[in-house]
Design a protein around this nucleic acid. Structure first.
Lengths: 343, 343
DNA sequence: TTGAAAGCGCTAACAC
DNA sequence: GTGTTAGCGCTTTCAA
């Protein structure tokens, strides 16, 4: 059925008249020094001529280490995730690890199913960007010894190591910026309260206002972090006020929501930023090209992925200290033309 | 070092007083029917209570099938690739396969290195979106029996199965659209000639013009499919003409290049589309929000990934016919505000 | 319908 | 330095 069988270390050993464990040693950089210099050469030469290709699957079975990490994303199609994944992959690659990928927005239980199937593949740990605040199964997993690092979002337990952006600070940057422009009546379009980011940004927004002695002018929760979610919530906000707007600026919980807001305001002929200022969060690509260029809070996507992967890798190799940390990255304000002086 | 050892089929077998091969059969849906109904129940119950988790890594070693596919992308951060990857993943997931991911834009030989390492992991095949026209190593791989399906780009050999977009048709759509708007002098900013898409679109552009009895008004090749590549090439095109533009429309080889063009024209105070019309290719997200909304040729990214994965899966399972096909998907014109009547 | 035995390719004590 | 031996957990003939 298959063509010529793969060449194995046993084949090499026989060919060279040595034992296969000798070949095994010669193949492993970490144990190569145990081998005679001349023999080492011969092994390498033979490997080349016979076309030997190491079989990590076999090594994995023997050692229990697959050199493979499970990565769970809601949906790679959401522009927030590519740079995170890229960061993850760069960190893993440097250590010879691969990412096994799953998008979990297919079904409700997709994340758990993926974790189970990846567990069967014996991934050494998980990088999870899909945590929901009331996920208790994640904490259960951890207690059974599964290595997990959360990215971008945390779960409710707070017990799992995570790498996230400082959402409170992000909101402070946004609010300070607007207040600096003279705005006093500021509205917030929140993300889903089921997500840690949705909640943290909402609280962050309120606290940031409070620091200026202000209260929210209006609040609404979007059903999802999408353009449509933003449009719908914004329409509701405006309609509820029947034309009498009591706010001059909107802080959106993420960029897609903000884009939805821009879209709706454009359709309703409300000028941005002359009549209403809008600011997003995350700073996804192309925001500088939209109309008007959208102000946002830039978070360190790539860095987030990279650090999360490093954290997991360190935990796997038993590096002390780093194991249980939660790393909080600093966001940065990016002011563009969608925010301007209060009317 | 490790906690309690994993539960294996041997443990289950002992616990139940049967042979492990019996348990193995009970675990495999395809061979379950060989097992007595009552015993089957007991096995399943025991598996549950003892917390048995199948070890695919071991199965992989035994069967030679890892249920894993290697996916090579240049850079997931380029908005063209997320939907392709999503399509791939959806198709793989349906068959219980996982994608092992590698971004290959890190180094020149990253693709070959990744293929080698993934080969060691015994992936069953490769989905490759990084082909370069003069890649001969891919063809070599195929001849040695490696299963490969190309996505988005083809290599030079034409011998490898691939799923791509109809680039000739895409250019025809773009050119027909512009000619329909009255343009006669049309320029092309080509992608790198080392990529199949760069070349095919360039030829497609020329042929499409020819069909209207026209010749290219100007041509330039961008060093990369990037915004900067577009800016630079466009600047060169304009500067070479010292202000005397002999074209009223630009067909860019992809959207990033087109965005670079828009950017440059904005800085030079040349009105789009009043003075120059611009059209891109691929229709990446947010193009409808940029200023002005960019016309483009929409290609079926998701479908491309999905079909490629299906093709590979079919080949792996020995489904006849489908194995060696090259599938060409039809693109579609998306006219927006960046293209308008010729001045 | 179930059991026995061999083996997938590699690693890891331990011995020489 | 190198060989021996014994698995890792599962599948797969072949028998019974």
């Amino acid at each position: 059925m298959n063509g010529p069988r793969d060449v194995t270390i046993a084949d090499l050993a026989q060919h060279l008249g040595v034992h296969k464990s000798t070949v095994s040693r010669a193949m492993d950089p970490a144990r190569r020094h145990l081998i005679g210099a001349e023999l080492l050469q011969r092994v390498e030469a033979a490997a080349r001529t016979l076309g030997y290709r190491p079989n990590r699957a076999a090594a994995a079975l023997s050692t229990g280490r697959s050199k493979t990490i499970g990565v769970l994303l809601p949906d790679i199609t959401n522009p927030v995730f590519p740079p995170i994944l890229r960061g993850i992959e760069d960190a893993l690659d440097a250590e010879g690890y691969f990412a096994l990928l799953a998008n979990t927005s297919r079904r409700d239980d997709a994340a758990q199913t993926a974790v189970e199937r990846m567990g069967a593949q014996r991934v050494e740990g998980f990088l999870i960007a899909t945590a929901v605040r009331d996920d208790s199964w994640l904490e259960g997993l951890r207690q059974r010894g599964t290595r997990i690092v959360l990215v971008n979002r945390t779960d409710g337990s707070g017990a799992l190591p995570a790498v996230i952006s400082d959402d409170m600070l992000g909101m402070r940057l946004a609010v300070d910026h607007l207040v600096g422009l003279g705005h006093r009546r500021i509205a917030h379009l929140a993300g889903p309260a089921t997500l840690s980011t949705g909640l943290a940004r909402k609280i962050g927004f309120e606290q940031a206002l409070l620091a200026h002695g202000l209260a929210p002018a209006a609040m609404a929760e979007c059903s999802a972090y999408t353009v449509e979610g933003g449009q719908t919530a914004m329409a509701a906000l405006l309609d509820a006020r029947k034309g009498r707007r009591d706010f001059s600026a909107v802080v959106a919980a993420n960029d897609q929501i903000a884009l939805g807001v821009l879209d709706l305001l454009r359709r309703r002929k409300i000028a941005v930023p002359q009549q209403i200022s809008v600011i997003g969060h995350n700073d996804i690509p192309l925001l500088d090209q939209v109309n008007p260029p959208l102000s946002s809070v830039r978070i360190q996507h790539y860095e987030m992925g990279f650090r999360a992967a490093r954290l997991l890798l360190d935990a796997l190799s038993g590096t002390p200290g780093s194991s249980d940390a939660t790393i909080v990255l600093r966001p940065q304000l990016v002011a563009r033309a969608s925010t301007g002086p209060a009317p």
